[in-house]
Design a protein around this nucleic acid. Structure first.
Length: 137
DNA sequence: ATTCTGACTTGCT
DNA sequence: AAGCAAGCCAGAA
């Protein structure tokens, strides 16, 4: 996974407000890069301090292997749920909980996405007298 | 180059 | 509602 992508994903995750969520695929779509599985990979490796529970499956199911911890967060921040967590199966009510960015937030997201595209298509280290990147026939 | 794997998604039973 | 198959994108072996 390219580091630029990782950073972009985490940057977006930090923008998601408490009580709202985004599906893995949503993040990939916002960034215009990678796919749901790539976002999942990032979350699996770098979920230390960010609001990892706010990124979940499109079905509303909590992130793999962390249902209970995630549930605690959902209850704490008032994330809309379907079903009764105390009785049976439950899911996040994606339709109601999905983050709808304000215009300002959307700008921030686009900025992250644009920066990512730039860095993805433009090597981080500037060429030292080797404009074509060193690939010779 | 090929194959396997995975915090995924969608469509079909 | 729950399970399954295929599709999909990247990294690892």
């Amino acid at each position: 996974m390219r580091e630029e992508f990782v950073e972009a994903v985490l940057a977006v995750v930090e923008l998601v407000p408490p009580g709202t969520v985004l599906a893995y695929g949503d993040v990939a779509e916002l960034l215009g890069a990678g796919g749901p599985r790539q976002v999942g990979s990032v979350m699996a490796r770098y979920s230390g301090d960010v609001g990892w529970w706010r990124i979940l499956r499109a079905s509303g199911a909590a992130p793999e292997c962390h249902e209970q911890r995630a549930l605690g967060h959902y209850l704490a921040e008032g994330t809309p749920l379907r079903g009764d967590p105390h009785r049976g199966p439950w899911r996040v009510d994606i339709a109601r909980a999905r983050w709808a960015p304000t215009d300002d937030e959307l700008d921030a997201v686009e900025e992250i996405a644009d920066a990512l595209q730039q860095r993805l298509h433009r090597p981080a280290a500037p060429e030292l007298s080797d404009p074509d990147g060193g690939m010779e026939p």
